[in-house]
Design a protein around this nucleic acid. Structure first.
Length: 737
DNA sequence: AATTTGGCCGTTTTT
DNA sequence: CGGCCAAATT
């Protein structure tokens, strides 16, 4: 192959993908194989070697983060603006289509986006009005049902409603959709579905975009759902026999498909090779991230799945260290072990931010946090509430939505009595009824009912003053900059005063967040978004807030250990990774054992977790764990047995020898790790945490932990030669020394 | 209108 | 066990 600046520093497979002729392409990209690099270089190649216009390229991702990274790296590589390219998330690009063609899809120009919290509130209201048995029908389930149908491309009229269950859900779906349409509201799934219907039903629009996008590149294709794939097919000219034949490149890894439970169809990868002719398949199997040990362990685990497209990761790097396996007595012991290992890592001069603690479910973080707190190890948890999802921020946004679109029932419901202004449940009920009977939005109904004196004096006054407030806010701030507009709205609406009046740390952060929102508006650059330029700054900002719930807040740049679920670790890498709670029932989760196919997905999740580790992987599990307040006994996860024994190192507690007593005055940090018995009862037994003891057979050691009381009480001793053991005090015949 | 109590439920998450 | 929500209090 001829040398070319874009192909330097790529391996053969990567080079083949980047410099491939214009064709449909499937890139099976293993973990850590340089997937993004290939995508970015491929785009640059298309521009430079095939002299394609940036207008003809679309690149789709799932997350805003991935989209931003891709755009940034393309820009860096080609050294020019990428404005002309459509690079974004499925939802972002669908939104862009809808804004550009709002009339064609029957939406008002000011349509707003419902996030899933808004959607749930909306459903709750609708279901109340339908007088459904609240014990039997929950908004959550209805939301699940509706989104699943939309993800399949189904409208209410597509459902036959065979059984009573489905018939009821169909009615809810129908009523919900009517309410959304009247209010000019679009939920996340609706963005995709409407955009799909637009392309499907409108030949002119469809041909326009088909003509434009000669190349469509899709990242993380294994995570696409039915509607997303259908969308890509329409845009590309539908594969074989389409009106326009565009080239589709899909990049993905069937072994990393971990979102089947939310509608992702791993089969879409297989389907792609059937739907499109002459697909070039390229496998990226060389891994640039992990050691041989980690890769062979991961390969060996994933090999237990069937129906794989097949792929085996390899590296030119060394074997590295074995994978440590720690069998903890319980979750407290597990957490303590992890904390002690992190301390050791840190003492060797390594950074804490290079360490990740991965777990299957969020509930597991608590115990880990406590252990870290006690060891004074700073940490950061991923996956908390996003900025734009916070209550106070959503309140402020609801006022803004109302300024943009009076028919936004969801926004009105949220703030009509926030802060309280004497519009109680009774009044609201009357307004809701009026709206339903007259087929009006809540805003119009409230206005009419108050003027027509259907509402009584006090309620009518309250409603009218709210209506005036919103109207005045719009008039007053019409000429303001976005930041000043939002600032005014927050203050004049009484929101700021309401949160300032509350006391406590929580209220303070709320006030801070409201101020931060004004800041965000000041810094908001509409040009940097996927929205058309003729949108008002306010509408652009509202769309931005809904679609990009807020990057993780720029927290203090502290060197901190990272805690997250296995799911949110996808795409990331860390020199040292702890996979915690690797037990049957937890991971794989109990629920996944009941349904077919779910276990394979759990195994892929395990594969994802293992392949996050660069240098060192530590797997821990607890034989006993408190779940929902009850002690449960667990066996080690089957996934552990799937790792070749030669890659595993079964560890025992290591003796800490910081000072002569082997404890370094750290007694207090272990004081937490008791379960059950009171500390007093324990000390009465004659032992103390951190105390040195002697056992006839096991030698000398340090007391780490205790559990239970009376004759059953057990004590954990970290023996100098043997590591830690749990002993029944009554039989162990320990001596103090 | 604000606060307290009691019942229920409980993976994984992005947009 | 603990968080959330709705009903029941003051």
């Amino acid at each position: 192959m001829t040398s070319h600046p874009l192909l330097e520093q790529l391996n053969d497979k990567q080079r083949a993908a980047v410099s491939a002729p214009e064709r449909h392409m499937l890139v099976l990209a293993g973990a850590g194989s340089g997937k993004t690099r290939v995508l970015v270089h491929r785009i640059a190649w298309l521009l430079q070697e095939y002299h394609l216009s940036p207008y003809s390229i679309m690149a789709v991702t799932f997350t805003n983060k991935a989209a931003a990274e891709m755009r940034g790296r393309v820009e860096e590589l080609v050294g020019s603006s990428t404005r002309a390219m459509w690079i974004g998330t499925f939802h972002g690009l669908a939104h862009r289509l809808l804004r550009a063609h709002y009339m064609d899809v029957g939406l008002p120009q000011n349509f707003q986006i419902l996030d899933s919290d808004d959607q749930q509130r909306m459903l709750k209201r609708i279901m109340r009005s339908m007088n459904l048995d609240e014990k039997r029908w929950s908004p959550k389930q209805a939301q699940w049902f509706i989104n699943a149908k939309k993800d399949e491309g189904l409208r209410p009229h597509h459902l036959d409603g065979h059984d009573f269950n489905e018939r009821t859900y169909k009615e809810i779906y129908d009523a919900y959709q009517v309410a959304c349409d009247r209010a000019g509201l679009v939920d996340f799934a609706e963005l995709l579905l409407r955009a799909h219907e637009l392309l499907r039903d409108n030949r002119i629009v469809r041909e326009h975009y088909q003509k434009r996008f000669r190349h469509i590149l899709v990242d993380e294709f294994q995570d696409t759902n039915a509607i997303q794939y259908a969308w890509v097919k329409l845009l590309s000219g539908g594969g074989a026999g389409g009106e326009h034949e565009n080239y589709v490149t899909i990049v993905g890894d069937d072994d990393q498909s971990i979102y089947g439970w939310r509608g992702a169809k791993i089969e879409n990868i297989h389907q792609f090779t059937r739907d499109y002719p002459n697909v070039d398949t390229i496998r990226l199997e060389q891994n640039y991230r992990s050691t041989n040990t980690i890769l062979s362990a991961a390969n060996s685990v994933i090999a237990n799945n069937s129906d794989r497209l097949g792929k085996e990761l390899w590296t030119e790097g060394g074997n590295g260290e074995s994978i440590d396996l720690y069998a903890a007595y319980n979750e407290l012991d597990e957490a303590r072990y992890i904390a002690s290992q992190i301390e050791a890592w840190h003492e060797q001069g390594n950074a804490l931010q290079d360490v990740a603690l991965l777990y299957r479910s969020n509930a597991q973080s608590r115990v880990l946090e406590e252990a870290l707190l006690h060891a004074r190890i700073p940490y950061r948890i991923y996956g908390g509430l996003r900025f734009f999802d916070r209550q106070e921020v959503k309140d402020a946004l609801a006022y803004l939505r109302l300024l943009a679109n009076r028919n936004d029932d969801a926004a009105l419901e949220r703030v009509i009595n926030t802060p309280t202004r004497g519009i109680g449940a009774r009044t609201l009920e009357i307004v809701r009824d009026g709206a339903r009977q007259r087929g009006l939005s809540l805003w119009d109904a409230a206005k009419q009912l108050a003027t027509e004196k259907v509402l009584t004096g006090r309620a009518a006054n309250a409603v009218l003053s709210f209506i005036d407030l919103v109207q005045e806010l719009e008039d007053e701030t019409a000429e303001y900059s976005l930041g000043r507009q939002v600032d005014t709205v927050i203050k004049s609406s009484g929101l700021m005063a309401m949160y300032q009046a509350e006391k406590g740390e929580k209220a303070e952060t709320r006030v801070e967040n409201l101020k931060e929102l004004v800041n965000a508006c000041d810094n908001f650059d509409q040009l940097g978004t996927e929205t058309p330029e003729d949108m008002t700054p306010l509408n652009a900002f509202l769309a931005h807030a809904a679609l990009e719930s807020g990057e993780e807040q720029a927290e203090e740049h502290q060197d901190a250990v990272q805690l997250m679920t296995l799911h949110s670790a996808k795409g990331l890498e860390f020199p040292l990774v702890f996979m915690c709670g690797v037990e049957e029932g937890l991971f794989p989760s109990q629920q996944s054992l009941d349904e077919a196919g779910r276990l394979a997905e759990e195994r892929r999740l395990c594969y994802v977790g293992m392949t996050r580790a660069m240098q060192k992987l530590v797997i821990t599990y607890a034989e006993q764990r408190r779940i929902y307040g009850q002690e449960k006994l667990h066996r080690a996860s089957r996934f552990i047995a799937e790792i070749p024994p030669e890659n595993l190192n079964h560890v025992r507690m290591q003796t800490r020898s910081r000072s002569s007593d082997g404890f370094g005055g750290n007694q207090a940090s272990y004081g937490r790790f008791h379960s059950g018995a009171s500390h007093e009862a324990f000390t009465e037994s004659g032992f103390q945490l951190g105390q040195r003891v002697r056992h006839v057979k096991f030698g000398e050691g340090t007391v780490l932990n205790y559990e239970g009381s009376g004759p059953q009480s057990r004590i954990q001793v970290n023996f100098d030669d043997l590591g830690s053991k749990w002993l029944v005090v009554a039989y162990a015949r320990l001596e103090r020394c």
